[in-house]
Amino acid sequence: MIVVKNLYKDFGNLKVLKGVNTFIKEQEVVVVIGPSGSGKSTFLRCLNLLEEPTSGEIIIDGVNLLDKNTDINKVRQGLGMVFQRFNLFPHMTALENISIAPMKVKGLSREEAEKIARDLLAKVDLRDKEDYLPDQLSGGQQQRVAIARALAMQPKIMLFDEPTSALDPEMVGEVLAVMKNLAKEGMTMVVVTHEMGFAKEVGDRVLFMDEGVIVEEGSPEELFNNPKHPRTKSFLSKIL
């Protein structure tokens, strides 16, 4: 479903990605871990071209993202993204946050879009918060609205960029619960996270990134219980 070949990304002189190669299958939950500065967020952001790769290839469902003729707005509709800092639209209610893209991008009527939004709010267990502004919601609630917002475009793939890192500890669980449900429903997911528990429980595959490359990958059991690369061992020994 997603094929990444020889992905490089420089920020000026700083080389952040130095040849990332991987593929992600349909319905697979891939968890990306690694120390800060390892390029894992940049890798994720390249997948929907929020960062423009310096070179390499990204092919999603047979569409080459870096082809100049590719309509990136179209591709992005199939890729939901959840951000570390939620990035909800502060001037819109929860319901409006979720219904704006289906209305303006897909051209649905307000009624259709709001129906989708209400169903999604129910799904993330925020049925009674539709008229709340982001400011009036807790961090965990905001992140759940943000997940619903991404789902409203009915994406085939969901990208999560450290979705629980900006949350108070007691709110991490509610967001992870929503993500687990999504995984159970068969959503293809790429999750950058420090939540090793989530990786073990939900992940089909774990990628360990360091210094701009994928150092090691494998099933959670393999990678956590029997890491082969010394850098993986050293990273895991620090966080587990």
Partner: peptide, 25 residues
């Protein structure tokens, strides 16, 4: 910056993102 990124990640083009997300704020 995250506002523009969120809007673009939903498939909005630059003009839509400006009109519905950035300019009202």
């Amino acid at each position: 910056k995250g506002q523009m990124e969120a809007a673009r990640s939903l498939g909005m083009n630059k003009i839509q993102a400006m009109r519905y997300i950035i300019l009202p704020q």
